[in-house]
Simulated assay, not measured.
Amino acid sequence: NLNNALGAIRVLGVELIEDELKPHLNTVLANIKERKKGTSEQVVISGILPILALSLRNRGPLSLLTAKLVAELAKESVVRKGFGDAGLVTALLSVLTCTNEELLIYAVIAISRMSYDSSKQQELLLQRGAVPRLVAILLRLPHKEALEEVCLLALCNLSGMGVAEEAGMIWERGVSLRPGECVFHGVSPHTCGFASSVTLVRVSQWGPGQYAVSIEDFQRCSSSFWNSHGNKRAQHWFPFFSLGSCSNMLKVIKFSTRNVPRTKSLKTRVFHTFL
């Protein structure tokens, strides 16, 4: 029973006793996955989000199960908008320094889902240093494909691109042209059949501990499409804007759209960040 599980987590959660809490966390997780009507609202009303944050920060035996639950809850807008006040944002970011690959994957998935369509959550995560932590994972744990994919998707969503998991983007490492640079590119086919989306992510090293993250999104269209629409071009520049106080990254993100050849359109988003 969901109500009983939520009540038990609220009462027992502070002590984080694995044997007692685990079945209740599994019950909530199962209900959230089934997308039963009213489940999200019950979770919010129950007040268990701070307990989940405590479990993540504790890094105990319940952390992985908690991360899985938080990642599922992050799909629900009514729940994730309360993550900041409940301490789940800082708890998730604290997990990004661990070495457990599976735990990292679910924490990053939660961050990616939080930032998918919410500029408020994006700004909060940026201010709290999500980008340098994600970049650090890419550099610290290379060639972990599943982890790389979720980190790259999270970076795209933090930049405001809104890349859905259902897009089926396939990532692979590209060829680096400069020392200290990591290149990734992902392809996501469009259902209409006329175009595919190609995303290029570059992580460049400026100096000791200093990196820039550049994210470029190309729309690659078929020749038949461009025969009909190839004459249309657009140019627009978005100005720099301030992110406010942020100790581990520069205060700006640059968004730009440029004229490009007839075979593609290009939107560039650049993070400048200090690790």
Rank of each mutant, 00 (worst) to 15 (best):
N4T: 13
N4I: 08
N4H: 11
A8I: 00
L12F: 07
G13A: 09
V14S: 03
V14M: 02
E18R: 07
E18F: 03
E20H: 12
K22R: 14
V28E: 02
E41K: 08
V43Y: 12
I45T: 05
S46C: 09
S46F: 00
A53W: 09
R57N: 11
L64Q: 04
L64I: 02
K75N: 15
S77Q: 05
V78P: 01
V78D: 03
V78I: 08
G84W: 01
L93I: 15
L96M: 10
L96W: 05
C98V: 15
T99I: 03
N100Q: 13
L103V: 08
I109D: 14
A110P: 02
D117S: 15
D117R: 15
S119R: 14
E123P: 00
L124G: 02
L126Y: 06
Q127H: 06
Q127D: 07
G129V: 13
G129Y: 10
R133N: 01
L134Y: 01
I137T: 03
I137D: 01
L139K: 13
R140Q: 03
R140F: 00
L141P: 00
L141E: 04
P142W: 10
K144M: 08
A154Y: 06
E166R: 15
E172A: 00
E172F: 01
G174K: 08
G180L: 11
E181K: 06
V183I: 13
V183G: 03
F184Q: 00
C192H: 12
G193S: 09
L200W: 01
R202A: 01
S204M: 09
W206T: 07
G207A: 07
P208M: 07
G209E: 06
Q210Y: 14
S214C: 02
S214Y: 00
C221H: 02
W226L: 11
A234G: 13
H236F: 15
H236V: 15
W237A: 12
L243W: 11
L250S: 12
S256W: 08
T257N: 03
S265L: 12
V270G: 10
V270D: 15
F271N: 09
F274W: 09
